[in-house]
Every structure is written in C-alpha cells, then in structure tokens.
Amino acid sequence: MIEQDWIWGFVGGLLIGLGGAVYLLVNGRIMGASGILGGLVDGSGKNSMWERISFIAGVILTPIALYPLYGAVDTHVTSNMAVLIAAGLLVGVGTRIANGCTSGHGVCGISRLSLRGISATVFYIMAGGVTIVLFRHVLGVI
C-alpha cells in the first residue's frame, strides 16, 4: 500500500529534481542549498551574488504562494531554543566543511554517482539516526 504522503513526497521530489536540472542545464551550476547560501554568508560567492540571492528568493517565495492552498501547515519544530541553536550551528558548520548537504551531496551527487556525494549521504544519515536514537530514546530531550 502506498500512502498519500509518499505520493506527495515523490511528486515534490520530482519538482526538487526539476529545479536542480534547470540550475544545472541552464545556469551550469550545482543546486546545493548550503553552498548557495554559504557562498553569500562568507563572501566566497561574491561574483555570483545576485544569482544566489535570486535562487534563495525563489525557495522562500513559492511556499508563500502555495501556503493558502494548504491552510495551516504544522512543521512540528521543537520549541527548545537550545536544541535549535545547537542544531543550526552544527548544520551550518558541517555543511560548509563537507561542501554540501542533502541537495548538493544527496540529490545532485547521488544522481551523478559521485563517490563523495554517496559517502557524505551515508555519513550524515548515520549521524542523524544515531543522534535521534540518543537524544530521543536514551536522553529524551527531543
């Protein structure tokens, strides 16, 4: 049995991949969220500043347009600010050290059968799984 969430996941995934395909085939760039944002944050992507800003604007804007169709969307985000800050720091530092996240290493890397992309994905999924088990089931923090 295929649940509805899975179908929407697949449809959304196709759109994500389509976005990556446009960014690659038209702009000649790899669609990695952490790289696009990180290059703006640390100034390393100054030459392509407006391209990066335009991409990020698109990411933020389409959910605003779609939101009314859905009504309330609960993201179930934790209200524990310490957890959010620690998590954000880890994600920011980690993705820049590793040169990629779920979109760059995951979607773009795996689809070109990149050893680095596949390895990174294995490492972050394993680390995420261990973290969930530790902090949810052992420590009961999240």
Binding site: I60, A86, A87, L90, T95, T102, A120, I132
Partner: peptide, 25 residues
C-alpha cells in the same frame, strides 16, 4: 573534511529535523 563535516551536519539534522533547503523554504 567530508567525513567530519557530514557527521556534524547529520547530528544537527537529526536534532532539529531541518537541513539548509527546508530551513529556507
């Protein structure tokens, strides 16, 4: 760098359930 960075990212991802793309979206 790839290993250390990905492990750090994965820990943060697990803690909050957010990665860079969805965080912006």
């Amino acid at each position: 760098n790839l290993v250390i960075g990905s492990v750090m990212f994965g820990m943060g991802w697990g803690l909050a359930g957010l990665c860079p793309g969805p965080s912006l979206a």
